[in-house]
Amino acid sequence: MSAVTAQPAADRAGAARLPGVLATGLRRMTYEVRGYFRSPDTVFFTFLFPLVMLGIFTAAFSSAGEIAPGPGTEGVSVGAYYLPGMLAAGVLLSGVQGLAVDIAGEKGDGTLKRLGGTPLSPVSYFIGKLGQVFVTGVLQAALLLLVSATVFGVALPTSGEAWLTFAWVFVLGTVASALLGIALSSVPRSSRSATAVVVPIVLVLQFISGVYLQFSALPEWMQNLASLFPLKWMAQGMRAAFLPEDFAVLEQHGSWDLGWVAVWLLAWLVIGLVVSRLTFRWIRRDA
């Protein structure tokens, strides 16, 4: 590239170069994480929400005893049963709800317009957002696991295989959710309507995907409907990691289907990437 002719600043001492896209993205990540924890509403409705829900479920249903996959099999506590779903919900909330509302807000209040007037690359901006979702998602999951183990007495898995399953489901789910959040951020026409658009979607998905209601107890048509969306697969992947092997019989096809979990999450990741790429604008362009 003809860096010298293309750069109007070339006549200045040192012919300065633009800061790197990745380095700037990582700087934005720390900036975004700081901003995240300074917003009380995101901390409560996104970060702490799954923990609060797990607490409520554990307190409400623990008197009903253990949940077992069938007669004569060993069951787990209510807290242990709901933990995988809450982990999956946390991933979805951090990515889809967190980013869609956040970015729609930034679009509405002029933050994006201002950034669009700087040499910041949109790629750096995305790296910052993805990084923020990843960091806060890890902290959220860690907090959820810690409280489950210490307060709710959930026995966490000890096999490396289970943790590996958790790790890849978490990473794939987080990236897919974050990209879907960016994609969804272009739907609301105003920052005020962002919450109204995004929250019902996320809430309905949580009900039909086995987060709040036991997935095996849902009618088949609802299970099939949920199978079209990523949350069901994240929850299934998390159950594979955290529930005893016996519970696999409760899944739709009697097994964890981890291969399909990977395929569906990857598919949603690609959809999120393509739609984000096509719809993201610093500002709504006229004509």
Partner: peptide, 21 residues
């Protein structure tokens, strides 16, 4: 492109309201 933008300074008429930083 970005190199061109780096030479512009823009003070918009209405600026963002958020002030987390």
């Amino acid at each position: 492109g970005r190199a061109w933008r780096a030479e512009l300074g823009i003070v918009l008429q209405s600026a963002p309201e958020t002030g987390l930083y």
